[in-house]
Design a protein around this nucleic acid. Structure first.
Lengths: 167, 167
DNA sequence: TTCCCTATTTATAATTC
DNA sequence: TGAATTATAAATAGGGA
């Protein structure tokens, strides 16, 4: 997250990976601590890194052990419900991204369309024929005016230079 | 970390705390995931939040259990990461979506429909090229931008100021 | 409430020392 | 190497709909 956007994949360069690992480990522990402190959450984490046999733990070995024991004793039913937590999270993220994508594409489309429509209105004087209620159902309007617009445009094409004809 | 510097203490306001909790939980899971993926680290987390009886787990229930067993029993037995493949597949999809999103947002490129519309208005291909869904989309587009179009048109009527950016 | 949007603060990749 | 610095990317607190 800096200088360059991070690529979501294993960092190939081993030394870079190690540097990144150290920074991110530290960052993750800090974030865990903040979540715990600011929001009164019980967090237990075990991290097996590639540079050490012993795992890192958060907040410490004893708490992790206790929390994990509690976790282990979850009734089977609840556990199975819990099984999908991660997947759900992931799926939600995907869903959100897809929605964003749709939205943005739509926005772009809107912008482009607005410009194009404006161009058409401005240059071809379609506006004269359009009132708000017509605009409310542009589909009809377009159908109604398309031929006319087309004709106007054909004419216009001959003298490509005339820009606007005020009403 | 925004608007105001975070105070390292329990957030008193319960609703603010909950909002913060949700954001930070999400953030922590993401960071965990990044550490795991970018640096090839085994992370296992159990989170008992105040708004739910069952804990959140990262990356999932099974891995947490395995990691816990390893943690508890010390020996360095190699646990195969059977879910990695699927997760990576999922993450690739996410990555792809993110890339698409970036691309679309930044380049603001003209999409197919816009091109088609442009053709329709600018050139000779009239209604034959337009399918009903395009027209329907157009209707929405205009509805959404009616005000803007009007403003532009009114402004244009007074004086001048072409804003078109035709392809 | 929940989502969405910025203004800021943080985290951190690349770079320098 | 590695610690410190810097320039960006990312996370997120507060506020609005």
């Amino acid at each position: 997250m800096a200088r360059n956007k991070v690529n979501y994949a294993l960092i190939e360069d081993a030394s870079k990976r190690k540097v990144s690992y150290n920074k991110r480990l530290k960052g993750l522990l800090k974030k865990s601590d903040e979540l715990k402190t600011l929001c009164d959450v019980e967090v237990a984490t075990v991290i097996y890194g590639p540079y050490r046999n012993e795992p890192y733990t958060f907040p410490n070995n004893d708490v992790v052990r206790n929390t994990f024991i509690k976790f282990k004793e979850l009734p089977t039913l609840e556990r199975s419900k819990n099984m999908v937590t991660r997947e759900e999270f992931t799926m939600q993220r995907i869903k959100k991204l897809e929605e964003q994508l749709q939205k943005v594409m739509k926005e772009n489309r809107v912008n482009e369309m607005t410009n194009k429509m404006y161009e058409v209105f401005k240059r071809k004087n379609v506006s004269t024929d359009m009132n708000p209620s017509d605009l409310n159902d542009l589909r009809c309007v377009i159908k109604k005016n398309l031929k006319k617009v087309h004709e106007l445009m054909i004419k216009e094409d001959d003298g490509e230079g005339s820009t606007s004809n005020a009403p």
